[in-house]
Design a protein around this nucleic acid. Structure first.
Length: 473
RNA sequence: GGCGGCGUGGCCGAGUGGUUUAGGCAGGGGCCUGCAAAGCCCCGUACGGCGGUUCGAUUCCGCCCGCCGCCUCCA
């Protein structure tokens, strides 16, 4: 069974399922106020890997991730560009999904939008006001955090400590500087919805409580997101659920930063690289591999060097894919461990063509708080085994190791490069023919010249027992 | 001020109280090859500093140094 670090307790603990065999995840998605950057990519990849792994172990997974499509920066930027808010958010959201697809991130089962849940958010705010834990001021409605038991759980600090360090500017009307806005009263010209406290829009922290509880129900298994959401966003979501007496997420998971020169990458610092830029320069799979190579809670440094490093590793996997003509197991969706017991409790017997012991090692690493670096070590061990066995003429052994590589890569959402784009044009095929002739005639000078021509045309040249083989570099 | 994380061999990056190594990339040597490429084999003997506990610590404890983060919007 999978264990995960729980932000609420600081411990690594098994996921506690409401219903055996089923698990529900809510992951905070993007605010569509601009282009997605590497940080969004890491978050999406980390949770995509988690989701795929849960599926791999035979669990029935429901994955919900929201889109925040109403928010201050959205309003400002749409206005600055002189376009309609709905058009602005639709454009950004389309880009988001395009990039997620390119990264091989599975679409969520549900993608609730904040603007579609305003009525229910108003209901929640009214409920909180009715319970006396929320109050109205001249500019909005606020939740009184002092009235929420256990506030500070996710920040892992007591309320007093948080209050002492509060950097928010004083607001005379707020009971505590930590009180956060549930409903923002609209200023002229701002988009708004009618509510008992006047026209306005919901505060950011309210949408996720409403949408997660609505779509997944009370006590859903896991709530996740980037570590920057731990406090105050997730703290405040939880506070609202607690204040209304509802059981919220059972488990909290947060992934670490992407850093640039050691500093966190973020919209506010402006030091971000967009995913579109990354994908224009690098194989999308390289970013997945880069993310998998470090633990999800550690910061990762993304530089041209670390990405190039990942691409080299990818080439090694691709070579195995080619050498053993491995199938693209992801072509028909996420893969399930053929030996999975069905309730995620552990591996059962594997088919004879898979190395069951290696799969068990892989799963043991993954079950230990998603130790993807350890899991990858298993995969690369198998790569070496497959090649070594093939070199030694052990056909069944090499096939088995290679098939296991394919299975485990698929479990992680890593696909082997297809040979698309590698069709050999007539001119290049002719060069290959000439080169084979030259080699047969032991005309090495000519053979080397032809290799040079092919290489400068972007081909990688390999001589094998059956003659020259070329592929795209 | 409060709270938290990290410091591993050239680079990235796991892990562990002691018996043989994580793994990847780069590098060196070898096999293979006409030469290469790919692949395989071998190699580096690393755990910030100072103390402590211990038969023994990179792994536990304390202190120190350095880096980073959270307490405001942020994946």
């Amino acid at each position: 069974m999978l264990t995960l670090h729980d932000t609420a307790t600081g411990d690594v603990a098994p996921l506690r399922l409401r219903t055996p065999g089923r698990v529900s995840l809510y992951v905070c998605g993007p605010t569509v106020d601009g282009v997605p950057h590497l940080g969004h990519g890491r978050m999406s990849l980390v949770f995509d890997v988690l989701r795929r792994y849960l599926l791999f172990t035979g669990l029935d997974v429901t994955y919900v991730s929201n889109v925040t499509d109403i928010e201050d920066k959205i309003i400002d930027r749409a206005a600055a560009q002189g376009i309609d808010i709905a058009e602005f958010t639709a454009t950004n959201e389309a880009l988001w999904w395009e990039i997620m697809d390119a990264l091989g991130v599975l679409r969520p089962d549900e993608t609730p939008h904040a603007t579609a849940y305003v009525d229910r958010m108003i209901d929640l705010v009214a409920d909180l006001v009715g319970r006396g834990v929320a109050y109205e001021t001249s500019d909005g409605v606020y939740l009184s955090v002092m009235d929420v038991p256990g506030y500070g759980l996710l920040a892992r600090q007591p309320l007093d400590s948080l209050r002492a360090g509060a950097r928010v500017e004083a607001d005379e009307e707020k009971r505590s500087p930590l009180d956060f806005v549930l409903w923002k009263k609209a200023k002229t010209g701002e988009p708004s919805w009618e509510a008992p406290w006047g026209a306005g829009r919901p505060g950011w922290h309210t949408e996720c409580v409403v949408m997660s509880l609505d779509l997944l129900g009370e006590g859903f298994e896991l709530h996740g997101g980037g570590i920057d959401l731990m406090f105050p966003h997730h703290e405040n979501e939880r506070a609202q659920a607690v204040a209304t007496g509802r059981e919220f997420a059972r488990h909290w998971m947060h992934n670490g930063w992407v850093t640039m020169d050691g500093e966190k990458m973020s919209k506010s610092l402006g030091n971000f690289t967009s995913l579109a830029d990354l994908l224009a320069r690098n194989d999308a799979r390289a970013y997945r591999l880069l993310v998998l190579r470090s633990h999800y809670r550690s910061p990762i440094e993304v530089t041209p060097d670390t990405i190039a490093d990942a691409e080299s590793g990818l080439a090694r996997l691709d070579e195995v894919g080619r050498r053993f003509d491995l199938p693209d197991l992801l072509a028909s969706g996420p893969v399930v461990d053929p030996g999975a017991a069905g309730d995620g409790s552990g591996p059962a017997a594997q088919p004879a063509d898979v190395d069951a012991e290696a799969v068990a090692r892989f799963r043991a690493r993954m079950d230990d708080d998603l130790d993807t670096p350890g899991a990858l070590a298993t995969v690369f061990d198998l790569v070496r085994q497959a090649n070594a066995a093939a070199d030694a003429g052990d056909e069944p052994g090499s096939r088995r190791a290679a098939a296991t590589v394919a299975l485990l890569c698929a479990a992680l959402g890593l696909r082997f490069r297809s040979d698309e784009g590698s069709e050999v044009d007539e001119a290049s095929a002719e060069l290959v023919r000439l080169r084979d002739e030259a080699r047969a005639a032991k005309d090495w000078a000519r053979a080397d010249a032809l290799r040079g021509e092919l290489e400068s045309a972007g081909w990688s040249v390999e001589d094998g027992p059956t003659g020259t083989r070329i592929r795209r570099q």
